[in-house]
Amino acid sequence: MGRVPLPRRFRLFTALIASALLALLVTGTASAIQPGGITDEARKMNDLFWIVTIAGLVVFVLVAAALVYALFRYRRTNDELPPQFHGGGAIEMAMVGVPVLIVIGLFTISMITLVEIDDPAEDDALTIEVTGFQFSWQFAYDLSDLGTNTDPNAEGTIAVIGTPANDPVLYMPVDEPVEFKLISNDVIHSFYVRDFLYKLDLIPGRENKFTVTARELGDFQAQCAELCGTDHALMRFVVRVVERDEFDAWVADEAARQLGEGARVSTSGTQGD
């Protein structure tokens, strides 16, 4: 075998590694702006995301540093045979022990988060029935199940139905738990709202449910996250989080439009100040 280190090439290599690391670091910090989330649940998941990220970064930096160090420090400088070290006892125990500790730690934390976000809604929470179909969404509101301001005697359902060309808008009130019931009758879809940091599949023959409490007002882009056919990419929708009274007003409008003026809706009386 040829002699020893080719310092120039070696520098090329390390420069490469270094620049790649740098690039990763830079883009990594760019992504540092990421998660966030607008629901109580999302905020907990966001915390977990950061814990995982920090753990991951620590592992990455330590291992990458060790790697780069080893490549520098132990590059071939002469033709001698280095000590033939096969490994053994203590180090190998550490090889297993360290990952075990990291992994158990992360698992525990993620289970705690899982339990925290997984509290089913009270019975009287607003329920929105989401139906995914090829290729858009229907959001249905049962007038007797509108949460805070429900008029128990209200009857009927209002629904928003989208098309691939026309994204439907999902109205929901801020600061109260909202339960989503997910249904599909054709293929699997997935209800994915980026700012909930959450998705759940709509599966034919199954009814999936989840509950969130939104804490921010505004429009949030969302779309189907499970391949469902030709126009899967167009299964978009908008989540519009509004104040309760705006929500009630919207319901009243829609009920009037969809069910006729006589329909009884929930907005009676309880509109607060």
Binding site: P5, A70, Y74, T77, E80
Partner: peptide, 13 residues
């Protein structure tokens, strides 16, 4: 395993 193999070696590229 891989780090330990590099460590203390005489590495060519």
């Amino acid at each position: 395993n891989w780090l330990g193999t590099l460590w203390g070696g005489s590495i060519s590229f």
